[in-house]
Write a protein that binds this DNA or RNA. Structure first.
Lengths: 243, 243
DNA sequence: AGGAGCTTGTGAACGCGAGAACAAAATCTC
DNA sequence: GAGATTTTGTTCTCGCGTTCACAAGCTCCT
């Protein structure tokens, strides 16, 4: 129903609206909200139009009302129990991340296959054996699992999760997961993001060099247009030198 | 030159090739590599064709050769010095992440504004005051900065980075950054990914409920088609119930 | 009340990316 | 060496997402 690209931006709008609300702003135009969210206003309006007509022409959007509508649409008005598997450095960081709790995600269990970690308590939650997964998933009706294990273990963990009835997986391990239809997987790969930046960085260097050697003009001609809103952050990197 | 969507997949292919090489495989077809990378073979071939003709018809690709070509194109054959700002839980995890080093990213400095952290040594690198940023950037010719601070500090950090000459930023803070043209920003937002999963999870529940209440048929009809390769992982979540 | 001035919501055009299908080229078989 | 087989590289088509442009609708002012 709602395009995938729009779904991916709704949480950004939600965050921007929360920031506006925190500053005491009660009403905003699509232009203001778009700026706060880092997109252009046409896209914002089209995105919001998929949810319904929650704005008022000539006026704008009621911040709190729109915030509630988006939250409801995404599903963050309800409570989502989450299990995190793999309590290494990243697992620790995730368990402690306050942004989960504040958006309706409750970490009900931390699991790790390593026995030496089972005495640990992270962010107020005890680390338990991985084999407890099924019991926990059934007890708390967990639908979302987070994988923060090494790559080698990721597929096994995913298989076990699916077997227990988990239908959404957030994967931080640098591995491609095979899952049945009906199971959603999203992956976050830290090193891939850096590699994408490196690619553009390399191109900038090449272009800058070529331009400098050919006609002495700096290849990065946009630097004076400072403070332009970071455009297109969601879709990908902004590319300084185009074409 | 190379489409952005392709650039985003090249690191995935690189990882898949490395995995194949580790298993002693010298040659692979586009079909095999595509499976390993979680994409379909047509897309893979098209992506690779942007780099040049590095395969042999009727045979396939030489794993090592293709790996080198992709690495060169991305720019990970060279060494990229990186600074990480914000050594909280996430900063710790990033500093310790081995996937950076193994792909040519070298963490040359960890910076934090909090004085109480300046005695710390994380992953063999001392935590230094944020004000040392400029000296470090110039000394090591740093082009890539990682922001792992709270959201409130992110824009200030970004501004300082840009002022020092950093032209690529990986932002983990849940904030929209405004940067000049010519500076690339990529963002990773952990809670946004979870919210996207929550949205689809909510829809699954609704559809399942509707189907169950209408005709008693389970809404998730694809679960028996187990072990289908996780399709379209890069582009977004796979959606179990379509239309 | 009526017009001026905004701002939303949407129809239409456009461009990019995905996937299918096929031609080109290499190897293998006999 | 010729045909069969395999697999790449590329062309073409389709669909989605972005952006533009404008009509519809609300408020404010006179």
């Amino acid at each position: 129903m709602i395009p995938e690209a729009t779904v991916a931006r709704l949480p950004v709008y939600l965050r921007a609206l929360t920031a506006l609300a925190d500053r005491g702003i009660r009403t905003c135009s699509s232009e203001e909200l778009a700026t706060a969210a880092g997109v252009n206003s046409a896209k914002l309006r089209k995105d919001l139009s998929y949810l319904g007509s929650y704005g008022t022409r000539g006026v704008g959007y009621d911040v709190d009302y729109l915030r509630y509508q988006i939250a409801r649409e995404i599903g963050v008005t309800q409570d989502w129990p989450v299990v995190i598997v793999g309590i290494g450095n990243l697992g620790h960081a995730l368990a402690n991340y306050s942004g989960f709790r504040s958006r309706g995600f409750r970490v009900v269990a931390l699991l790790d296959a390593d026995r030496s970690r089972h005495q640990e308590v992270v962010a107020g939650v005890a680390v338990r054996p991985f084999d407890d997964l099924e019991a926990i998933v059934h007890e708390h009706a967990v639908a979302i699992g987070v994988i923060a294990t090494p790559a080698a273990a990721a597929q096994d963990v995913a298989d076990r999760m699916v077997a227990c009835g988990i239908t959404s997986i957030l994967n931080f391990a640098p591995a491609v997961l095979a899952v049945p239809d009906g199971v959603d997987v999203r992956k976050v790969d830290l090193s891939i993001e850096l590699q994408i930046l490196a690619y553009h960085e390399q191109r900038k260097a090449q272009v800058g060099q070529a331009a400098a050697s050919v006609d002495g003009v700096d290849g990065l001609d946009g630097l004076d247009g400072a403070a332009g809103v970071g455009s297109g952050q969601l879709d990908g990197a902004t590319i300084g030198v185009d074409k």
